[in-house]
C-alpha cells in the first residue's frame, strides 16, 4: 500500500462552453451546416499536482470560481480529467450537495438503502447500521414518510447521517458543515471531529477560514484553476488572507 491516500498527477480539466447550449438535433444540424458550432475552451483546472498523505486533513482554499468544486469532483471520480490522472486508495465518500441523490417518492428508510448502495456499500452493512443512521438524523418518527414531504433540513440531516455512519477512508466535505439548525451543526461538527481520530483522510472546502484552520492541518490554495500554494495550514492561510485583502 502506498503511503498516500490521494495522488493528483498533473490534472487538467477542460470545459467546452458553447455560447448557447445546443441540445436539440435540429439546432445541432443547423449550426453544423452553417458553421456556427463554436466552443469557447475553458480550463477550469490546469497542471494540478499534489499528494495527500494518509490521515492528513487538507483544506482547499480559493475564491469563487477558482476551481475548488471541480477539483473535488475530479478527485471523487465524477469528472474524468481531460489530462493527468488521480489515484485513490481506500473507500471514498463524498459529501457534496447532501441529499441530491434521493428519490423523492421513496420513503426515508428506502432512501437509506438506495443511497448507501450508490456509495457502494453492501446490504449487510446497511442492515447493521440502519438504526444508527436513523437515530443520528433524529428522524425516527418520519422514516416511513416519502422524502418529498421532508423539509430541506431533514433531507440534509439524513444525507449527512448516511454518509458519515459508514466508515470511509477518504472523506470529501464541500460546505457541508452548514447543515440543519445550530444544534445539528454542532453535532455534525462533533461527528466529523470524532472521525478525524480514526485516521481518515479529509478534503475540506469552506469559505469560513476559521473553520478550515480549526479542522485542517494542511491546505492548498487554488487561483483561476492553478495551484499557487501548498503546505501547512498556517502558511497557506496567511497567503490566502493576503490575497483576499
Amino acid at each position: 500500500m502506498s503511503k498516500y491516500a490521494i495522488e493528483v498527477n498533473n490534472v487538467g480539466m477542460k470545459f467546452n462552453l458553447s455560447q448557447e447550449k445546443v441540445d436539440s438535433l435540429k439546432e445541432y444540424v443547423i449550426k453544423l451546416v452553417t458553421g456556427k458550432l463554436r466552443y469557447n475552451e475553458f480550463w477550469a483546472l490546469k497542471n494540478i499536482d499534489f499528494k495527500v498523505e494518509k490521515g492528513d486533513r487538507v483544506g482547499i482554499l480559493g475564491l469563487n470560481g477558482a476551481g475548488k468544486s471541480t477539483l473535488l469532483k475530479v478527485i471523487a471520480g465524477v469528472f474524468k480529467p481531460t489530462e493527468g490522472e488521480v489515484k485513490r486508495s481506500g473507500r471514498l465518500v463524498p459529501l457534496l450537495e447532501l441529499g441530491a441523490g434521493f428519490d423523492p417518492q421513496y420513503t426515508g428508510a428506502e432512501n437509506i438503502y438506495l443511497y448507501s448502495a450508490v456509495l457502494g456499500y453492501p446490504k449487510s452493512f446497511v442492515d447493521e447500521k440502519f438504526d444508527d443512521i436513523v437515530r443520528f438524523a433524529e428522524l425516527e418518527k418520519f422514516i416511513d414518510v416519502p422524502i418529498k414531504n421532508y423539509s430541506s433540513g431533514m433531507k440534509s440531516r439524513l444525507g449527512f447521517s448516511i454518509a458519515t455512519q459508514v466508515e470511509p477512508d477518504i472523506l470529501i466535505l464541500d460546505e457541508v458543515l452548514s447543515v440543519g439548525d445550530a444544534k445539528f451543526r454542532k453535532k455534525s461538527e462533533k461527528k466529523i471531529m470524532s472521525m478525524f481520530k480514526t485516521n481518515v483522510t479529509v478534503l475540506f472546502v469552506s469559505h469560513s477560514l476559521d473553520q478550515v484552520k480549526r479542522l485542517c492541518n494542511k491546505a492548498i490554495l487554488l487561483e483561476h484553476g492553478e495551484l499557487t500554494a501548498a503546505g501547512d495550514i498556517d502558511e497557506v492561510a496567511a497567503i490566502y488572507e493576503e490575497r483576499t485583502k
Binding site: V78, G101, F102
Partner: peptide, 9 residues
C-alpha cells in the same frame, strides 16, 4: 442526473 453529478457509479 442527481446521483451522477455527485458520486462515481
Amino acid at each position: 442526473a442527481g446521483m451522477i453529478k455527485k458520486v462515481y457509479v
